[in-house]
């Protein structure tokens, strides 16, 4: 069996990239970036599986590893806090150099074994895959490894249960329901709490009006309709000032459109002055 030129090219393109991404796992500071690196390695691995006549495993690799396992990793990263960067203080002295040394040693030993061993001439899977790869796999899996598959099924169920049990949190305090909240509100009525939500601040045409109070049914401004932060900062405005400014603006626009009668022209100058003052106020704000 000979390896095609296309596969050779694929290997020499993918292998260095995958090795780089794997090294990123060691050198990258943030856990999320490490997760991205691992995802790249896993997708590259899936491509290599397909190239190596293991199309079923290639698909399973994408679905199980990049689809499920790495997503689970990302979920836990979000849960644990995405900014959690590694501390660089060593608790065991010389651990870093020892780790580098052991990693390099392991690589040297494994590569040495592979280069020293003599492998039989490659057979290739063309014959075994004659009935398509999934069927060939299924025949081995469901004939020779039936017991192992059943045991693995039990293992998966156990793992799912373990995940549920381990992350289960027992409730310490009784659950607060909608009913309890409503009862609490009614009980707080004598202390001056209102049942309804607070009135929204007034909205007038001229300004965005978070800072102007709404008017009550009696026409009096409701101070507590302005957000508390604005009130404390002293940025709340009175409703009458806004209303006066608006009236003057309407009068000016009518005058500009030539809709005012002659006797109203006398007021025109005043309205213009109001408008100018209003514009000035706007700039100040």
């Amino acid at each position: 069996m000979t390896v095609s030129g296309g596969e050779t090219a694929l290997f020499w393109v993918l292998a260095p990239l995958m090795t780089l991404a794997a090294l990123g796992l060691i050198f990258v500071r943030r856990a999320v970036h490490a997760a991205i690196c691992v995802m790249f390695v896993m997708v590259g691995m899936a491509i290599l599986y397909v190239a190596q006549e293991a199309s079923f495993l290639g698909v399973v690799q994408v679905v199980v590893y990049t689809g499920a396992v790495m997503m689970l990793f990302l979920f836990v990263l979000m849960l644990v806090g995405i900014d959690a960067a590694d501390s660089l203080t060593e608790t065991i002295r010389g651990q870093r150099w020892l780790g580098v040394l052991l990693g390099l040693g392991l690589a040297a030993v494994l590569l040495g074994v592979i280069s020293a061993a003599t492998f039989p001439p490659a057979v290739g899977l063309a014959e075994a895959n004659a009935v398509t790869n999934p069927v060939a796999l299924a025949r081995v899996l469901l004939a020779d490894y039936v017991l192992a598959m059943e045991v693995v099924g039990v293992l998966l169920v156990t793992a799912a249960l373990a995940g549920l049990v381990l992350t289960h949190r027992r409730r310490i305090s009784p659950k607060v329901t909608q009913r309890d909240l409503a009862r609490e509100r009614v009980a707080a009525l004598p202390q001056g709490r209102t049942l309804t939500p607070l009135p929204a601040p007034g909205v007038y045409a001229q300004n965005n009006a978070m800072d102007t109070p709404a008017l009550g049914p009696d026409g009096a401004p409701l101070e507590h309709s302005v957000p508390r932060v604005l009130r404390i900062r002293g940025q709340a405005r009175s409703a009458t000032a806004v209303l006066a400014a608006e009236e003057s603006l309407v009068a000016r626009e009518l005058a500009d459109a030539g809709l005012l009668t002659a006797d109203a022209d006398a007021d025109d100058d005043g309205a213009r002055a109001d408008g100018a003052r209003d514009a000035h106020q706007g700039e100040e704000r």
Binding site: L25, I26, A107, L111
Partner: peptide, 13 residues
């Protein structure tokens, strides 16, 4: 082998 060694180094480091 290289990927395995890198993974092992990650666990150690």
């Amino acid at each position: 082998a290289v990927l395995f060694a890198v993974g092992a180094a990650t666990v150690l480091l």
